[in-house]
Design a protein around this nucleic acid. Structure first.
Lengths: 163, 163
DNA sequence: CATGAAAGATCCCGATG
DNA sequence: CATCGGGATCTTTCATG
């Protein structure tokens, strides 16, 4: 996907939708300082350019059910491409894993796992062993409390390159 | 906020909106297996009950700008309530920190930091030192690649308690 | 819960300055 | 870029079974 040239108004549109995904086109236009028609055209362009990956409701999980949130760090015993591919394919297939990054240093992967309860998480870890994923070492860090959740600051990130 | 009694249709509504935050009420009703009117009533109830915290567009950050994503683990040198409060207040005030959990064991906090670039992240770490937050040890893990991002599976989490 | 209906708002897009 | 217009669609609510 080729990157488009974005100006400040485009960034305002994206930022507004990031914070309020159900804004009407009229209010979106107002916030972004444009009138409805050009705002609509920009939005269409941004969507077509892949800048908007989707819209999601933020659901209060804690009201729905108890659950355990765990950060798991993983180091593989070997570092061939096939080892990474096998592990990552497994990660993508488990919906308990809601976030996974690759990293350098002594740790290869850091992921966030959400399970309905502790025994479900233990089953998850058990599966990691059984599946022969080439894991050398792993560490688990149970979340006792969610201190903060926030959205990335789009305007700051998009503006930084101009400095 | 008192928890409501939710049935399977409520969970389907929440799950559908989690995945497609801009669904029209008509399609939402269809997906959740209801007709429009009762679906609308349930949605109003869920919203009033705090089950829907908001709606957000998922923006393709990587198209907007280069940025560095870092997992930072922190241990405080003392563990009085005031020490936790001070650190957490700081965390809440920094918009580079998009996620922070408290955890047990040798690590007190694990957070995800998004900076426009490496030097901005170094400045961030510098601030951590300067601010006298009572940090004993910290470790940084730079993300080299985003392997996976997914939404928590609402229906699985909400159903698990029934088993 | 389902159906049907109706006023009002919104959406999409084209025309024009 | 802004304003205006209008047909299609969606939203919200109410009455009825």
């Amino acid at each position: 996907m080729k990157k488009l040239a974005l100006d400040a108004a485009d960034v305002r549109i994206l930022s507004a939708l990031q914070q309020h995904g159900q804004l009407s086109k009229a209010k979106l236009a107002e916030i972004s300082g444009l009138s409805a028609t050009p705002c609509w055209a920009r939005l269409a362009r941004l969507k077509a350019g892949g800048y908007i990956r989707g819209y999601h409701a933020d659901i209060a999980l804690s009201l729905l059910a108890d659950f355990a949130q765990v950060i798991v760090t993983v180091s593989l015993s070997r570092h061939r491409k096939a080892d990474f591919d096998r592990f990552e394919a497994y990660v993508k297939g488990r919906d308990e894993i809601i976030d996974c990054i690759a990293t350098g240093g002594g740790v290869d992967y850091i992921m966030k796992v959400v399970s309905p309860n502790l025994t479900a998480f233990q089953d998850f870890v058990e599966d990691l062993h059984v599946e022969d994923l080439g894991i050398d070492r792993y560490m688990t860090h149970f979340a006792t409390r969610q201190v903060k959740t926030a959205l990335p600051n789009i305007s700051k990130l998009a503006t930084a390159r101009l400095k």
